[in-house]
Write a protein that binds this DNA or RNA. Structure first.
Length: 218
DNA sequence: CCGGTTGTTCAGCG
DNA sequence: GCGCTGAACAACCG
């Protein structure tokens, strides 16, 4: 990475899109993604490991660890659909709904991991929101009644704010209903655990409480 | 000590 | 070019 290019530059703007942190300088942007294990500190470097990147400003230094760092040249508005960000003021549920309706065969467990639809959603949010909305992970978008689809889209955003609140309180895990759990908190039967969908991520769900539409008994 | 994963990207293949 | 698979990365938890 051409590190000298960053010398003496002013940080113009800090933005985010989903899980990405975007540091805008004039002429280029640094894109930071913390992946599974990344972290950052300010003014307190970690003793036992080297930062992937550190940036020193007049008022302090930020250190980034175990993350992906990329240099973007493009205009961010051309790169990112801001309306897909589930925690943004610009979030547009209607946009995501109409994109979903174009893919009736898409599984809900895959939809909730697709960043262009739900930027910021991940595997924990997927598992928890599907349980909260009583939807089986293998539902196809096209079989969902409009009411259920709208409620699902709405709850991804709502749960993301709860997630953040609980995370800040260090009580996130305590609030998990199904993720990493073995028993359904609602009906007390054992939860199913499987690697589902095209992403094949760990999926926890209750076969009793989470409905599969379009597969009614004849 | 070991196995698994809150996520993404890339190489390789058919 | 597409879709799929496996690997790579990396730190922490149980």
């Amino acid at each position: 990475m051409p590190i000298q290019r960053m010398q003496a530059k002013m940080l113009m703007e800090i933005r985010t899109w989903g899980k990405q942190l975007l540091l805008q300088f004039s002429g280029f942007t640094l894109r930071i993604h913390f992946l599974l294990f990344g972290s950052y500190t300010i003014n307190e470097p970690k003793e036992n490991r080297a930062p992937r990147l550190s940036l020193t400003f007049k008022n302090g230094t930020v250190y980034f660890y175990a993350c992906s760092v990329r240099l973007l040249e493009e205009d961010l508005d051309d790169l990112y659909p801001w309306q897909a960000d589930i925690m943004s003021d610009d979030w547009n549920a209607k946009r995501t709904r109409s994109l979903l309706l174009e893919q009736p065969e898409l599984l809900v467990c895959d939809a909730l991991l697709t960043q262009d639809l739900f930027a910021g959603s991940g595997n924990i949010i997927k598992n928890e929101v599907l349980f909260r909305k009583h939807l089986h992970p293998l539902n196809q978008i096209g079989y969902l009644p409009a009411k259920q689809l709208n409620a699902l889209i709405k709850d991804v955003r709502q749960y993301a704010f709860l997630f953040l609140k609980w995370k800040k309180q260090y009580t996130l895990k305590k609030h998990w209903c199904v993720h990493n759990k073995s028993t359904c908190p609602r009906c007390l039967i054992p939860l199913k655990r499987a690697y589902l969908g095209k992403f094949k991520r760990r999926t926890f769900y209750c076969e009793n409480c989470q409905v599969l539409f379009g597969h009614e008994k004849k």
